[in-house]
Structures are given as C-alpha cells and as structure tokens.
Design a protein around this nucleic acid. Structure first.
Length: 857
DNA sequence: ATACATACC
DNA sequence: TACTGGTATGTAT
C-alpha cells in the first residue's frame, strides 16, 4: 500500500535509487525528505547515470509487457484461466502443512556485534561498512533512512552523526559459529543462508520435545557480570573464551524436579536464574532465541510457518527480537498471504515488483486474481513461482547446502586504464581465486571475466574449456585472453575499469561422472534385497533423481565391475552383493548395536513412504519427497561414527576431517561433496603426467604480455601453435591482433595447453599403469575395475597387490572424439612412475581416521 | 554456451 | 572522493 508510492510517483523519478523501506525498522520516516537527499547526493554521478539507463531498460521491458497485455484476447485469457486453475489444483494437492519450518535471522547482525563489543556505540546511530558501502546499520540509524547497501557517504548526508565501523568478518564468523551450534540442537541439518540467517526444520525436534522432561527445557540465564559490561574489544579471532560458563546449560543430568528459580523481575535478573520452556513450537523457538541471546548477547528474530517461503516472511514480521507463528492451517496461510505485499516475498525484487505494480499487482491477493494474465506475460518458471506464492506454498523440505556451482573473486578500485596494470590485477585475481579453489579442491571448465568500466557498465566474457582448470596459471591463461580480447575490442581507446572479477564454474565431478556414480545406497544396504519390489523400485527412482540433481558420491565409491553393476540395476540378488555390501555388512556387525539400530531406523523410515507418481515430475511433492530420500541416502553413506555424532538431540556438533583414500591426506571437511571432489581431483591429478612446467616467472609473463599488446606486431609460428589449442573465439582474437614472439613463448611456459591436443596419458592410481586413453569415462571405468581387484585381494588377506593389468583400449575413446589421432600406441600400457603421485599403495597403520577403509575391515 | 539481468545477504 | 562482493538463477540469444 505504502510501498507503491515510491515507484509510481512520477516518471523519471528513480525508483531504483529511492529509499527501500521494505526492511524492518524503516516505518514512519520522512521518505520524501530522505529521497531528496539521496537524489541530490547522487545526481550527475556516473553511478546515477547508469542507474538511469537501467531504469529505462526496465521501463522498456514494462512497456513491452503492457503492449503484449493489450494484445491478449478474451479467449486466450479464458484458456489461460483454465490452465491456471489446473495448475492451482495440482499445487493444492501438493500442499503439505505437516512440517514446521523456522527461519531465524539475527537482528542487525554486524551492527549488533559491534555494539555489543563497543558500548559507546550503543546509543549512537551506527553502521558497519565504509564510506563507499554499508553492510548494515543499527536501528537508531535506520530512523534516518540509513540502511544496508547504501553508500556510507550518502548515509552521512542523511545522518551526519552516523558512526561507520569497518567490518570485522572474522568476528562475525565466530559469532555465527556460536549460533549455529545452537541451531544444530534443533535441526542438525539446518540450512545457513548467511552468517546470520538460517532455515530450520523443527518438526523432528518438536516430536522429541514432547517427551522431554522439564530439565531438558530449562536454561540458565547468563550471570549478569559476564554480560555486556565486560566485553571489550578483544583479539579478532578470539571467540568467547568463557563460552562454557556463559552458555545456558541444559540440565540433562539434574533431576526433573530441578526448581525453576526464575526470578520475579524476569529473565535478566541475577546470576542463577532459570527459565523453563514449554513443549510447543513457540516455546521451542523462544528457547532457541533465548539461548542465542544468553550465549552471544545478541538477539534474533524468527518466523514459524509450514514452509520456507512463509517462514522467511514471518521472521520479518516481529523484528527485532520477536517471533511470529503462522498456524499450519490452510485458512491461516491463505489469509496471511492475501495481505502480503509481493515485495516481501523472497525472490520478488525491485524489478519484479515494478513490473507487477504496472499490472496493478501489489499484494499477493492481486497475484492470485491476475494469475491467468501473469501466465501469459511471464515465463513458466516465473508464473509458477507467482502461483505458489499466491497459494502460500513453498518448500517444506530444507535442502542440504547444495554443491557450489561457481566460485569467483572481484575487486573494485580506482580507475585502472593501463594494460599492464589490468593484466597484473587479473593475475592477482586469478591467484586469489586459485587459492580459494584449492581450499575446496575444485576444478572448473568455465572461466568468466567480469569487467565494469568507470561508467558502471558491466561486461562478462566467458570461455569454456574441454578440461578443468584450477591453478592460477591455468585460470590466468584463459582470463588474460578474455581480457586482451576486450582490450583489443576497445582499442585504441583504453578500457577504463573500475572493477574486475574472475569466476570459475562448470566444476568437474558434477556432470562428468554422473553416469558412473550409481547408487552407493544400494551397495550399502545390507540384507534388504528383494524384500519389497515396489520399495526397491522407489529407491532406484529416488536415487536417479538424486544423482541427477546433485552428485553426492563419486565413482570411487561405486566401484563395481560393470557386469555386476548391471545385475544390481535390474534388482540386486544376495549372492551378487558387491564387496561394498559385504564389507559394510561385516563392519556393521562390529558396530555398536545402537549405532546400527539407528542407521537401520533411518532406512526403515525411508522405505515406508508411499511411492511417487511417475508423471509427477514437476510436482512439488515428489520433488520434496525425493529430496528427503536423497538426504537420508547421503547420510547413510557417512561413516557411522560421524553420522551418529551429529544426531544427538542436545549434543554439540561434530567437526572432523576425512582421510582421502587416494593420497591419505586429511581433508578438512565433513562435507562429502567436498570430500568426494577431493578424491576426484586426487585421482585425476596423480594420474596426469605432471608434464607442463608448474610455474614460470609470472612477472615476466605479464611484462611480455603488455609489451606484446603495445608494440610489436606480427604473426609468429609459436603463436599459431598456441592458437590451435584454443577454441575458436579465442583464436579469432589472437589471429586478428597478433602479439610478439616473446609474449607467446612466455605464455607457453606459464599457461598449460589443453592436454587433449598434446596426447595426454592417464596413469591409473591403483595399478600405476599408463592407460592409453584420455577419455575420463573410459579411464574411470578402468580404475573402478582396478580398485575392485585390489580391494578383493585385500579382503582375501593378500597384502601385496598383484593386480592384473586392465588396459583400456583407445577405441572407445576415439569414438567419442576425445583422443587425438596420433595417440596410436596400441600396445600394452607401460608402467610409469610419477614421482608426485601419492599413489594409493595402501599403507598400514592408518590411524583411526574416516577412510573408506573402514568398510573393508 | 554466452551474455546480461535480477535477486539475496 | 566515495555506490560492494559472492553466489545462484532467470532470460534472451
């Protein structure tokens, strides 16, 4: 209602720049005055001009839409209406009101942390960020219109007394860890959205909670002495040393008769006060927020609803330091949604809002009314989303943190126009990115360069390679070409940059190995064979869906010979169990009984659920259900010690490392995706001949690069060679604008060439034999076979590994057009020693780590 | 596959 | 003086 005013006022008024009073703490302030200041401060700037341009683009989009709308006939609308109703009915059937989803959000998080640690700030308007950009502001500052994503210098205009504190992310991360520990007590699989925000599924907790004694629901108030006063500005990375003392205690071992000493003055009274919380959702969430406050001296707000979309909206409702429950009835949900402004919905931003407003839609009730129209004007994904919103539907399943899809780094700076500087910056970015990539053991095939010029115009240029890259040199080899292309396109004008970024995506391990990563679930299921036909089928289906959406397991764990695999697909028989199964079964016997029981319990629960409609691929329900299963399956795979440690009701969190079965190094993660990827890397890394020079003088490379651009022109033999190895687009540029010999020769040292043109040879990490292929699929298959052989040997008690030579012929690979023709040597693969290869000669005396060895003992 | 836009924190 | 940085996803080509 109020919201529309800012965007519909007058044309030419920059709705993009105007104050966004969508957020909490922004009610009842003088918007016109604030907007005036914002405009005056921004007017004429390059930023402003660009915003103007973007605004016009949006306006054109809207015009186009309105034109389209004008051409819609009654009949089309009728038909659309019918379609919409069908979908609505379908969606309605999928409505699930049985879950209790909670969205928790710390109040003004960064600002609150800073205020906590520096009491001087308490009653001042303050914000965290810089003169250029603020990340958040406290509620005092919000009264002036100062808010997140506003540049500090404008904020200062709005509020001259504003104190701007530079961010201290290490501290926020530490606090975030603290609150996440608490989250985990209510939902071990909670999904963090950011440092200060998370979605939790309270359903299971609430069920357990019903039978909890009061003692488990009793929490002590922090002693007043340790509260605000004593907190000084400490060492940056130091969390809270006295956490144990501060944290509210769960009185697990105290008698249930433990007295409630809640003092009359309230929670905050004196040292030894307790508070008892009930068993309802509200109480449980209140308890969680209470514990957060006790532990961190910071407040959180929460929303409770039957799905994520609603929970998110609800958490904003009583912010700060409040919570809001939306009852799990269709009525309550529909009522709630009717009044909901579309802009409040996560996913509907400034632009969508404006477009919807143009159609007279500002609340979700309008959304529902105009659905037929929307279905004709928006893409299917868009209007389906609108439809769900209008029905108050959202995800009832909180997905596990998905696999990362890209990684990037970018930097804004003062105008940068010199080619050498641009290139050296580019290299720097690549180095930073490579470092980050290394931390997560990632390799990606697509490199994207992002440029923003001084007029704030953004450009991206991407190149997808046939092989994955990870090192700074590899990334830079691509990025610099992309950059040079842009430089040359602009020439003779220089690129006047204000930002540069490098992103890498298309990680390997996602699409590549999917075909081979059959279900580990099946292998690990002991004695479930043939028990129930439908269930089996269901599992298969779920697994398929699971693996097609996110790959969790890699082929290393699915190391089953092909013939055997086929049998299992058709329906596994007990005598055809994989060694994984047998090994795992054996291991299970040695497990503590309770562990096994728990694991089993999970599977049992999973197999009871009703099968899913075959044609319901698009149905939310099936999607959600499938994911539930996937989730379980994933956990099934976790070595039992881990899996159970994290499930304890009141317990703490587990943070362990896993040991790579290839290199036997500790991988500092409990994320199986990361772990599996590490193994992928490990295997493919060690298999590749480390032929290219690992590093050459990067500086000289840069110097030569820029020289080449500026001065000497002329095609060289070396360059042609290089060009051959790059995809056409890059070639074009390289040909059109040639460089010097020197720059090129430097390139050759620094930048690794695509291996498929150089006849790469892969070495099996198990048998150490060179495989005459570079088709990873073929090669993986070989390793599968090899691994199996080795493991089977060991299971039979043979310590050495007299492994048969399993060679992969190149025929298969050439079929796929991935082998260069000259890779002829058809003979037996020959042994090769790769010194850098920490090859998996299984050494004994492995510590009690979480290796897959566990399965084999 | 690439480019650009939108969205979220 | 000064308008972010990281990730995901949608839209268009």
């Amino acid at each position: 209602m109020e919201n529309g005013a800012s965007s519909t006022k007058e044309e030419g008024f920059l709705s993009r720049m105007a104050l966004n009073d969508n957020k909490a703490g922004m009610e009842g302030l003088d918007r016109d005055k604030i907007n005036k200041i914002i405009m005056e401060t921004s007017k004429g700037s390059r930023f402003y001009e660009n915003e103007l341009k973007k605004e016009q683009q949006v306006n054109q989009r809207i015009e186009k839409m309105m034109l389209q709308k004008a051409q819609i006939t009654e009949q089309q609308l009728k038909k659309a209406q019918a379609q919409v109703e069908r979908v609505a009915l379908e969606l309605e059937r999928s409505r699930d009101l049985t879950r209790v989803i909670v969205h928790v959000d710390m109040d003004a998080f960064y600002a609150a942390v800073e205020m906590r640690d520096c009491p001087e700030l308490k009653d001042k308007p303050m914000a965290v960020g810089s003169m250029s950009m603020l990340s958040t502001s406290n509620y005092h500052a919000r009264k002036f219109g100062v808010r997140a994503a506003m540049p500090g210098f404008i904020a200062k205009k709005l509020c001259p007394n504003l104190v701007i504190v530079p961010p201290n992310f290490d501290k926020y991360r530490a606090v975030s860890d603290e609150i996440r520990e608490i989250f985990a007590d209510y939902d071990p699989h909670f999904q963090p959205v950011s440092l200060d925000e998370a979605y939790l599924d309270f359903t299971d907790h609430l069920e357990k909670r019903q039978s909890w004694p009061e003692s488990c629901r009793t929490h002590r108030c922090r002693t007043s002495s340790t509260a605000t006063g004593e907190r000084q500005v400490e060492l940056p990375q130091e969390a809270v040393p006295e956490v144990a003392n501060l944290s509210p205690v769960l009185f697990e071992d105290s008698p249930s008769s433990s007295p409630c000493l809640l003092s009359p003055e309230g929670v905050r009274a004196s040292g030894g006060a307790f508070e008892v919380f009930g068993t309802s959702v509200e109480e449980a969430v209140r308890e969680m927020r209470f514990r957060i406050e006790q532990k961190t001296t910071l407040t959180a707000s929460a929303g409770i609803a039957p799905n994520m979309m609603l929970a998110k909206v609800c958490s904003d409702k009583n912010k700060p330091n409040g919570q809001y429950v939306l009852p799990s009835t269709r009525e309550a949900v529909m009522d709630f949604v009717q009044a909901l402004p579309v802009r409040k919905v996560s996913g509907i931003g400034k632009v969508s809002e404006k477009m919807l407003n143009a159609l007279g839609i500002s609340s979700c009730s309008h959304l529902a009314q105009q659905m037929a129209l929307l279905s004709l004007l928006f893409s299917e994904t868009s209007w389906h989303h609108f439809m769900q919103v209008s029905l108050g539907l959202g995800s009832t399943y909180i997905p596990r943190h998905e696999e990362r899809k890209s990684m990037s780094t970018e930097r804004t700076f003062k105008e940068l126009s010199k080619v050498e500087e641009q290139l050296s910056l580019c290299r720097e970015l690549c180095e930073d990115l490579a470092e980050d990539m290394k931390k997560e053991d990632l390799k990606g095939k697509t490199v994207t360069l992002k440029l923003k010029n001084v007029n704030f115009e953004v450009k991206t240029r991407a190149l997808t390679l046939q092989y994955a890259v990870a090192t700074a040199d590899e990334i830079f080899a691509v990025a610099k070409d992309l950059l040079k292309m842009e430089i040359e396109n602009e020439s003779p004008q220089p690129l006047r940059l204000r930002l540069m970024g490098v992103r890498i995506s298309a990680f390997v391990g996602l699409d590549d190995k999917k075909p081979l990563q059959k279900s580990i679930i099946g292998f690990l299921q002991p004695g479930k064979t043939g028990s129930s036909g439908p269930t089996q089928e269901l599992h298969q289906k779920l697994e398929n869906e699971h693996f097609s959406t996110r790959s969790v397991l890699t082929w290393h764990f699915a190391g089953v010979p092909t013939a055997q695999k086929k049998q299992e697909e058709g329906g596994q028989t007990s005598e055809q169990q994989s060694f994984f199964q047998r090994a795992h079964a054996k291991r299970l016997q040695l497990q503590a009984a309770k562990s096994s029981a728990q694991e089993e319990g999970r599977r049992e629960a999973a197999s009871v659920i009703t099968p899913i409609d075959t044609d319901a691929e698009n149905s939310l329900e099936s999607y959600a259900e499938a994911n539930k299963f996937s989730d379980l399956s994933e956990k099934d795979f976790i070595p039992p010690t881990e899996a159970h440690a994290s499930t304890s009701g009141c317990g703490g969190s587990v943070s362990e490392s896993l040991t790579c079965p290839v290199c036997f190094r500790q991988v500092e993660t409990t994320d199986l995706n990361v772990f599996n990827r590490h193994i992928d890397q490990c295997l493919s890394n060690t298999c590749r001949k480390p032929d290219h020079s690992t590093d050459s003088d990067s500086e000289s490379d840069l110097e030569l690069e820029s020289k080449g651009l500026d001065k000497h022109r002329g095609e060289s033999e070396v360059e042609k060679q290089e060009a051959k190895n790059y995809p056409q687009e890059a070639q074009r540029s390289l040909k059109n604008h040639s460089q010097t010999d020197s720059s090129i020769s430097a390139d050759n040292e620094t930048a690794p060439q695509p291996r498929n043109n150089k006849g790469s040879i892969l070495t099996c990490p198990v048998c150490q034999l060179t495989q005459d292929t570079n088709d990873l699929t073929v090669f993986n298959h070989h390793v599968d076979l090899c691994l199996n052989q080795e493991v089977l040997h060991e299971l039979r008690g043979q310590t050495s590994s007299p492994i048969n030579t399993l060679s992969v012929t190149k025929s298969k690979a050439t079929d796929r057009g991935q082998l260069p023709p000259r890779q002829a040597s058809k003979g037996k693969s020959k042994r090769r020693d790769s010194p850098s290869s920490p090859c998996p000669k299984r050494s004994k005396g492995l510590g009690p780590h979480n290796t897959i060895d566990k399965f084999f003992r």
